[in-house]
Each structure stands twice: as structure tokens, then as C-alpha cells.
Design a protein around this nucleic acid. Structure first.
Length: 200
DNA sequence: TGACCGATGAAT
DNA sequence: TTCATCGGTCAT
């Protein structure tokens, strides 16, 4: 996917990413999956977003990469043990991102099972931490260009509106009213989602 | 320098 | 529903 794909708001990018294919190339091999669940984090005005009310790129701050151009990876560590993979969206100065929450495994399934240590398929990439483990995504990929070779996103089958659904986001209750925004996008009938919580 | 806590996952 | 686990963040 070209750079221009990422140069609009996180909400639009989150919706557009449904059905696209996240590909990860590493020395151990290639692993990929169809994106079936995303969440938009809409910058300075979104109380759930890591860049909420953040003015300028504070040097050394984990959100720095969000202030640059879209189409790069924002990877961070959560709960001291899991990585989360985000796609930076929008133009420089508009710090927005899309969290990739679940994939339908496609290529490299044996490699993903090995990395995760589980035999199944439905539970292989059904959560933000799980898919990072399955694809071998660590903070080494912080700031990685998604138009490069290590990790990138391919156009997939378009997902029509009748197959998509938006819901409130998962585990952002601390953000008050923002926790109610319909910024989570899922492929309605996918069997590979992280959870069915809040699904209408 | 230190206290607090989380865009989770797995077990119970 | 509980808890493991620890780096990032921000207040001193």
C-alpha cells in the first residue's frame, strides 16, 4: 500500500484497513494475516489516545513517531509484557494511529504457531498482543516504514459496509466519554476477533 | 529517584 | 474475575 493510503484520519484508515493483509518478513520466514479488527485513536482531542493533549513531540517520548507522517509502525509495550502494533495515520503534526487488534491467519501458520506456542488457528492472532507474538513484532520495529520490506500491508478483498461493524473500543474505560466513540471496526462474521464484547 | 498503572492474555 | 509483570510516564 502506498504512503497516501495512510495520509488521512485514523477513523477512515481504521475502516479501510479491514480486509487488508498485514505481512511480516523476518529471518525465520514470512507470516501474514487478514486484518479483521482495528481501533482508531484520533489524536490530541481523543482522551483514549496516547497523544491526547500532547503538544509537541517531546524528545524520547514513546509517542514521537505519531507526530510524523502516516505509514510507519508505532509499537509499544503494554502491561509490562505484551507488544501492541499500530499504524500511524494522517499528516505530520496530527498524531493519530490505528491499533491492529486481530488477524485471520493467512501465510506462515506453522511459524506463527511456533512463536505463540499454541496449536489452534482461531486463537493465533485474536488480540493485539497475540498477533504481535505470532508475527514476531517487537519494539525493534518502532518507527519502521510500512512501505518497506520488514513489515507492510497489502490491499485485500474490499469489505462492504454490510459486512463491517463499528463498536466502542476495548479497555479504554478510563477515557470517559471517549470510551463510547464507535472507533472499533470489525468484520462482522469473522471467527477471528479478539472478543465479541460490545458488538451490537 | 520513585510510585503508579496499563489500547492484554491466560487461567480460574 | 483475578492476577502476572515491568517499562513508561510523571510527580517529586
Amino acid at each position: 500500500m502506498g504512503r497516501e493510503f495512510y495520509m488521512e484520519g485514523a477513523v477512515a484508515v481504521a475502516r479501510k484497513l479491514l480486509g487488508a493483509v498485514l505481512v511480516r518478513n523476518s529471518p525465520q520466514g514470512t507470516a501474514s494475516g487478514v486484518i479483521v479488527e482495528t481501533e482508531a485513536y484520533a489524536g490530541r482531542d481523543d482522551a483514549a489516545c496516547h497523544s491526547y493533549k500532547r503538544d509537541a513531540p517531546a524528545s524520547g517520548h514513546r509517542t514521537n513517531v505519531m507526530f510524523g507522517p502516516g505509514g510507519v509502525a508505532y509499537v509499544y509495550l503494554i502491561y509490562g509484557m505484551h507488544c501492541c502494533f499500530n499504524v500511524v495515520a494522517n499528516l505530520p503534526g496530527l498524531p493519530e494511529a490505528v491499533l491492529i487488534r486481530a488477524l485471520e491467519p493467512k501465510d506462515g501458520i506453522a511459524l506463527m504457531r511456533e512463536r505463540r506456542g499454541v496449536p489452534g488457528l482461531k486463537n493465533l492472532c485474536s488480540g493485539p498482543g497475540k498477533l504481535c507474538a505470532a508475527l514476531g513484532i517487537t519494539r525493534d520495529l518502532y518507527g519502521a516504514d510500512l512501505c518497506g520490506g520488514e513489515i507492510y500491508i497489502e490491499r485485500g478483498e474490499p469489505v462492504p459496509d454490510e459486512s463491517a461493524l463499528s463498536t466502542r473500543r476495548i479497555n479504554v474505560d478510563y477515557s470517559g466519554e471517549a470510551s463510547l466513540y464507535p472507533y472499533r471496526f470489525v468484520i462482522k462474521d469473522s471467527g477471528f476477533l479478539s472478543t465479541r464484547r460490545y458488538v451490537a
